[in-house]
């Protein structure tokens, strides 16, 4: 039997995309996390000390200045250095923001350290091939994963059981 043409394939597949047997399954049970989140009491506004607020404002201003600087130099090249500097600012801002908030687990530093090791390995590869788009993208993803991790462990509503 010959392979259907692309048009026939689309015509056959598209109407079936909402069928239960055509839909992908998540890798884990998501309900427990949802249940936990919807049963959390509404978050009360936390009263941070003036120093924490001041540190947050300072971090925001410096991040703003840095991003302005990055944007101004953008026409030349998006370099690893620019990306790293911007990421460090973001990371520090998050750490300041969550300084007074307990983390969900005590061992969250372990995956963070693994991500930092991955970051170093990619940076090393980039020193040999600084314009490699795939490496730059990988570095950006590792940075993003670090930010996600810091955010997630400090936001109980997304805790997975």
């Amino acid at each position: 039997m010959s392979k259907p043409t692309f048009e026939q394939f689309l015509k056959q597949q598209l109407p079936r995309q909402q069928d239960q047997d055509q839909l992908p399954e998540p890798r884990k049970d998501l309900w427990q996390g949802i249940e936990k989140a919807i049963n959390l009491p509404a978050a009360e506004p936390r009263s941070a000390s003036p120093w924490v607020k001041l540190a947050g404002v300072a971090a925001c201003i410096s991040a703003g200045l840095l991003s302005w600087q990055v944007i101004m130099t953008q026409p030349q090249q998006d370099t690893m250095a620019n990306m790293s500097a911007f990421f460090e600012q973001r990371k520090q801002m998050l750490l300041v923001q969550y300084e007074t908030q307990p983390a969900l687990t005590q061992d969250w530093q372990v995956p963070l350290q693994e991500l930092e090791e991955a970051e170093q390995a990619i940076k090393l590869a980039l020193t040999k091939d600084p314009d490699n788009a795939a490496l730059l993208k990988m570095l950006a993803q590792v940075y993003q994963q670090q930010l996600d991790l810091i955010t997630k462990v400090h936001q109980p509503q997304w805790q997975q059981i």
């Binding site: 944007i71 998006d78 990421f87 730059l136 930010l147």
Partner: peptide, 9 residues
Amino acid sequence: NWLQKVVSL
């Protein structure tokens, strides 16, 4: 958000 400002990939 922040990636797109810094990396144009």
